[in-house]
């Protein structure tokens, strides 16, 4: 689904958020349909059929597929020559507030000390905005609404470097098994290896923006992605943890250089409601929105 035209920046954010929460991307739907076709377990079929039905209702009625519309994460690649730089943060904040009442979204920003919900999905460090400066005059923003159930399974482990990549696999399998049905399988796993602790988690989350079925361009990592995917699906956790052939739709790995003494591994869980949208803003105000 693609939308193009001259558009106000705040409107563009609202439309991208609406697209993300109401419409599950085609690559994910295809993977879920394949999971349905190769499934024999009745409980798994009950859940997969409900999943495919709710996706269809979300698309048709333009309403959030899942009621947990999450904390909104924005990954901004801001061209240093874009004339819009000074407005971006305002557009994102205002767009988040407007999307909350117009789409609508569930308000999910809670004050840690008082327990009060801000009511508009805006609060301290929320929405989450990751800034990166790039060359040129375009701005590209990825929207990733991240639900709580799957995020509660996310983790960071600081491995010993001599344990190597085999240990990564063990950590992932152990964590997926521990979490069972909690993250709303079939899941998508983002795995970040290397960096400092913060980098590992950020690249793991960013990995979720890749399409289902898209392999890491590095053949060694692509192979590891497929190995982990096979092992996870061999666990038999299945849709919603009630057994079945498909526990994960995909595994995405990203790497960063690490300190000689450190080997961080971050695992970010994404539920089957693999929500995302992208928008690009040209210097002249032309906007393109897609998934």
């Amino acid at each position: 689904m693609i939308m193009t035209g001259i558009m106000d920046g705040t409107d563009a954010i609202v439309e991208a958020v609406r697209l993300a929460v109401a419409s599950i991307p085609e690559d994910t739907i295809e993977a879920l349909k394949r999971a349905y076709e190769r499934e024999e377990n009745e409980l798994a079929l009950f859940n997969l059929s409900n999943i495919l039905r709710t996706i269809e209702i979300g698309r048709r009625r333009h309403v959030p597929v899942c009621q947990d519309t999450g904390i909104l994460n924005f990954f901004v690649d801001a061209g240093v020559e874009s004339p819009h730089l000074r407005h971006l943060k305002g557009w994102i904040i205002d767009g988040t507030k407007r999307a909350t009442s117009e789409v609508p979204l569930r308000p999910n920003a809670v004050d840690v000390l008082t327990g009060r919900n801000s009511g508009d999905n805006v609060g301290r460090f929320v929405p989450v905005i990751h800034w990166r400066l790039t060359e040129g005059d375009k701005v590209r923003i990825a929207v990733l609404p991240k639900g709580g159930g799957s995020e509660n399974c996310s983790m960071l482990e600081m491995l010993t470097p001599s344990d190597g990549l085999d240990a990564v696999k063990d950590v992932v399998i152990r964590r997926v098994r521990e979490c069972g049905g909690k993250p709303c399988p079939p899941i998508i796993l983002g795995i970040g290896i290397g960096g400092g602790a913060d980098t590992a988690v950020e690249i793991a989350k960013r990995a979720l923006l890749r399409r289902v079925g898209e392999r890491n361009p590095d053949g060694r990592l692509a192979e590891l992605e497929e190995e982990i995917l096979d092992e996870v699906n061999g666990l038999g956790i299945g849709p919603m943890g009630l057994g079945g052939r498909t526990t994960a739709l995909d595994v995405k790995i990203e790497v960063a250089h690490r300190h000689p003494a450190s080997f961080p591994v971050a695992i970010v869980f994404q539920c089957w409601a693999n929500r995302r949208a992208f928008l690009e803003i040209e210097a002249d105000g032309e906007v393109r929105i897609w998934q």
Partner: peptide, 13 residues
């Protein structure tokens, strides 16, 4: 009773 996680639009019907 289990209902399918994430199937919010379906439940709303």
């Amino acid at each position: 009773f289990a209902f399918t996680g994430g199937a919010g639009a379906l439940a709303a019907e």
